[in-house]
Design a protein around this nucleic acid. Structure first.
Length: 649
RNA sequence: GCCAGUGUAGCUCAGUGGUAGAGCAACUGAUUCGUAAUCAGUAGGUCGUCCGUUCGACCCGGAUCACUGGCUCCA
C-alpha cells in the first residue's frame, strides 16, 4: 500500500501499515517522537491501520496540543483504570467496577461508572495520584480487533459494556484498547503509551448521569477531568474558571442588588430589586423604541387563561407536565399562562381582518409561568416565572419572508448593541421519527425552507438541529455561551402555520374569500430574566452608562461640598440621569473605593476648586482601570453624558 | 425529577458533644480629609427547619426545605 506525506511525496508501506510504520519508514527519530497522526485530515493514532492512499501528517511532542482529543481520551482510560485500582485497594474485586461511556470532551474527558460504593469528591486527589503512577509505569496502549463473541465474553460481567457490544454491527470489527492489565472496548484513537501523556490534568468533579442519557435508565456516577498539553494551559484554564466565578450573575446580582430569590416567595420566582428594575426597564425602553419604528402594536393580556384556550392551542396537551396545575374556579378551570401566543391569537380574532390590514404585529412584555423541574432552576437563567419580550406577527404567506427578514434584522441589531459576538444560530427542524408535531407536511416543509432561505440570505452561519422544533413549527434560536461555557438559548424566531389553523383565524383576501394567515413568534431577548442574567456575566457587572442602574456618583471631598454636590445631582436628575451624592462621613478615598466596588461608571469628585468654578473632577471606570479628567465644566459634562445616554454609546 | 455535595450574623468565612467567634457592612461619636479602606465604640445569630440519640446537640442519626455542580428537560 502507499500513503502521501504533506509535501506530496508517496510512501510505500506493507499492507495494513499504521502511522507508526510510516514514521519508522521516514526515520527512527520521528518514530520515537511521534504521538499521533492525521489521515485525510482526521485524527488517528499510531496503531490503527491507515487507509490506502491516505494523505497523512504526523503529530510529535513538539505540538502535542494538536492531538488534544487523543490524550484527553487516553487520560479518560487511565482514570478508568485508576478508579478500578482504587476500588481494588479498598478490597473490592476486579469486576466490581462497571463502566459506561468515557469520551473526550472540550477541555477534558469524563467517564461514567457503576461503582460498588459512591466515589467521594475528596477522593479525587487519590484517583489522580494513582493516575500519575500509571503514567509513570509508561504502559503502551495496544489495539486489537476481536470478534463480537470474544468481546461479549470479555465483558460478560459488565452489563453496560455488553449492551454497547450487542448494539454494534456484525460486519464491523470490534476493537479493544489495552494498557497494562486494563482492557476497554474502544474505537480509539489513543496515545502510544501512558508515559507520553501530558501531566497537566486535574479531576474536577463527579455527578450523576443516566445510562445512555435516558432518565428511565439507572444512574451512573460520572467523573469529570480537564487536561491540556502543558501546565501553563491548565493553569490558564483554572484561572478562567476563577474569573468566571467572579462574574457569576448570581453573585453580582446580590452584590449589586439587582435581584433576589426568596424561598418564601417561591423557587424560581425572582424578585427584581430597584437596581435590577432599572436595568430591565432600560432594556424594555430600548426594544419598545425599535418596535415602534417597525410598526408593532403593544397589547396587554392577563396572566391566566381558561384551560380551553390552552387545549385549543395544544399547549396543555403537549406540555402538561411543565405547566402549573389548573386552578378551579366555580365550574371552570384556569391555568397560569405558559405562553402569550393563544392570547394574541384571540386579539387577532377579535375583529374581521382584511388582507390590507396585514401584517398585524402584536407585541407584549408578557409574563409567563412554567413548572420547570426543580433541579433545572438556576439564578435568573432558568426560572419558573419570567417575562418574554414576545410578539406575534400575523401575515399573508407572501409577506412571510420579508417579515422574517425584518425580525432577523432586529435580532442582529439587539445582539450587536450588546456586543454579543459569541452567538450561535440554530435552526430547529422536525424530528422525522417523532409524532409530537402538529400540522401538515407541506406547511412544515415550507416553513423549514423559509427559515433556511432567510438565514442564508442574511449570510449568518447556522447549524441545523433535527428534533429541535416547537410542536407547532420550526424555529431559529440564538444561543450564547455564559462565562463558564454553558450554552443558553436567548432569542427565538418561529414560523407557525398551525396555531392559525387550530384557532381557525383568517383574513379576507383581495378575492373576497377567507384565507389563513401565517404567524411568526419572536422574542429577540428571549426572556428579560435570562437576558439580564447573561448580560450581567457578559459585562461582568460593568454596564455601559445607559444600562448602569447607578450611573453617577458625586463625591464631595468635605461636608461643606455636600450642598454643591446635591445641586449637581438635582440637575442630573432633571436631565433624566441617575446621580447620587455620597454624603457619608467617609474620607474621599473611601468614597471613591465604594463607588468603584459598586461598579458605578462615572465618579465626580467635587471640592473647593470645583465648587468655585462650577466644575467637576471626572473619574470614569474603564476596562483598563480608570480615566481621570480634572477641571471639567459641569454644563459640558452634563451635555456629554446626556448624549452618551441617549445614543446608548 | 435523578445523583453527589453544601447550609453558622446582611456579606465572606472560623469553630467545638458542655447552650457561638472574626473581618467587612450597619448604627453612634469623633475626624473634614484631593482619586481604591480615618479612628473609637455599639448592636446584631432558635448555628436552614423538624424529629430522634444523649444528662446535655450547632456538632451524632433520620426526615424535610433551600442552594451548588452535573444528568434529564426547556413551547
Amino acid at each position: 500500500m502507499h500513503v502521501f506525506l504533506p509535501d506530496g511525496k508517496q510512501l510505500d508501506l506493507d499492507a495494513g501499515a499504521t502511522a507508526l510504520d510510516a514514521a519508522k519508514a521516514i526515520g527512527p527519530r520521528l518514530a520515537q517522537d511521534a504521538l499521533a497522526a492525521t489521515a485525510n485530515g482526521e485524527l488517528t493514532d499510531l496503531m490503527t491501520p491507515l487507509p490506502e492512499g491516505a494523505r497523512i501528517t504526523l503529530i510529535t511532542k513538539k505540538n502535542p496540543a494538536e492531538a488534544a482529543p487523543l490524550f484527553r481520551h487516553s487520560l479518560g482510560h487511565v482514570m478508568s483504570q485508576a478508579v478500578g485500582e482504587f476500588y481494588e485497594r479498598k478490597g473490592f474485586g476486579p469486576e466490581a467496577v462497571k463502566r459506561g461511556v468515557g469520551p473526550s470532551i472540550e477541555n477534558g474527558f469524563y467517564q461514567d461508572f457503576d461503582l460498588p460504593e459512591p466515589l467521594k469528591e475528596e477522593e479525587l486527589p487519590q484517583i489522580e495520584a494513582i493516575m500519575r503512577e500509571i503514567l509513570g509505569r509508561n504502559l503502551e496502549f495496544s489495539r486489537a480487533e476481536v470478534s463480537k463473541a470474544e468481546a461479549l465474553a470479555r465483558f460478560a460481567y459488565d452489563p453496560y459494556k455488553a449492551e454497547l457490544i450487542g448494539a454494534l454491527p456484525e460486519d464491523e470489527p470490534i476493537t479493544f484498547y489495552t494498557q497494562g492489565n486494563y482492557i476497554d472496548l474502544c474505537r480509539g484513537p489513543h496515545f502510544p503509551s501512558t508515559g507520553k501523556l501530558p501531566t497537566a490534568f486535574k479531576l474536577m468533579s463527579t455527578s450523576g448521569a443516566y445510562w445512555r442519557g435516558n432518565e428511565k435508565n439507572p444512574i451512573l456516577q460520572r467523573v469529570y477531568g480537564v487536561a491540556f498539553a502543558s501546565q501553563k494551559e491548565l493553569d490558564e484554564y483554572l484561572t478562567r474558571l476563577e474569573e468566571a466565578k467572579r462574574r457569576d450573575h448570581r453573585k453580582l446580582g446580590r452584590e449589586m442588588e439587582l435581584f433576589t430569590i426568596d424561598p418564601l416567595v417561591g423557587r424560581g420566582l425572582p424578585l427584581w430589586l430597584p437596581n435590577g428594575t432599572i436595568l430591565r426597564e432600560e432594556l424594555m425602553r430600548f426594544l419598545r423604541e425599535q418596535q415602534f419604528q417597525r410598526d408593532y402594536q403593544g397589547v396587554i393580556t392577563p396572566n391566566i387563561g381558561n384551560l380551553e384556550l390552552y387545549k385549543t392551542s395544544g399547549h396543555y396537551q403537549n406540555y402538561g407536565d411543565s405547566n402549573f396545575s389548573p386552578i378551579t374556579v366555580d365550574d371552570e378551570q384556569y391555568m397560569l399562562k405558559p405562553m402569550n401566543c393563544p392570547h394574541h391569537v384571540r386579539i387577532y380574532a377579535s375583529k374581521p381582518r382584511s388582507y390590507r390590514d396585514l401584517p398585524v404585529r402584536l407585541a407584549e412584555f408578557g409574563t409567563v409561568y412554567r413548572y420547570e423541574q426543580s433541579g433545572e432552576l438556576n439564578g435568573l437563567t432558568r426560572v419558573r416565572g419570567f417575562t418574554q419580550d414576545d410578539a406575534h406577527i400575523f401575515c399573508r404567506p407572501d409577506q412571510l419572508k420579508k417579515e422574517f427578514l425584518d425580525v432577523l434584522d432586529l435580532t442582529v441589531l439587539v445582539l450587536s448593541t450588546f456586543g454579543m459576538n459569541d452567538v450561535r444560530f440554530r435552526v430547529g427542524t422536525r424530528d422525522p421519527e417523532s409524532s409530537k408535531y402538529v400540522g401538515s407536511d407541506e406547511n412544515w416543509v415550507a416553513a423549514e425552507r423559509g427559515i433556511m432561505e432567510a438565514v442564508e440570505e442574511v449570510g449568518l452561519p447556522y447549524t441545523v438541529e433535527p428534533g429541535d422544533a416547537a410542536f407547532y413549527g420550526p424555529k431559529l434560536d440564538f444561543v450564547v455561551r455564559d462565562v463558564i461555557g454553558r450554552e443558553w438559548q436567548l432569542g427565538t424566531i418561529q414560523v407557525d402555520y398551525n396555531l392559525p389553523e387550530r384557532f381557525d383565524i383568517s383574513y379576507v383576501g383581495e378575492d373576497g374569500q377567507d384565507h389563513r394567515p401565517v404567524m411568526i413568534h419572536r422574542a429577540p431577548f428571549g426572556s428579560l430574566e435570562r437576558f439580564v442574567g447573561i448580560l450581567i456575566e457578559h459585562y461582568g457587572g460593568d454596564f455601559p452608562l445607559w444600562l448602569a442602574p447607578r450611573q453617577i456618583a458625586l463625591i464631595p471631598i468635605a461636608d461643606r461640598h455636600n450642598e454643591y454636590a446635591e445641586s449637581l445631582a438635582a440637575e442630573f436628575k432633571r436631565a433624566g440621569l441617575r446621580a447620587e451624592v455620597d454624603d457619608s462621613t467617609n474620607r474621599m478615598n473611601a468614597k471613591v473605593r465604594n463607588a468603584e466596588l459598586s461598579k458605578i461608571p462615572v465618579m465626580l469628585v467635587v471640592g473647593d476648586q470645583e465648587q468655585e468654578r462650577r466644575e467637576v473632577s471626572v473619574r470614569e471606570r474603564t476596562p483598563e482601570g480608570h480615566k481621570e479628567r480634572k477641571g471639567v465644566g459641569f454644563d459640558a459634562l452634563l451635555a456629554e453624558l446626556q448624549e452618551r445616554y441617549n445614543t446608548r454609546a
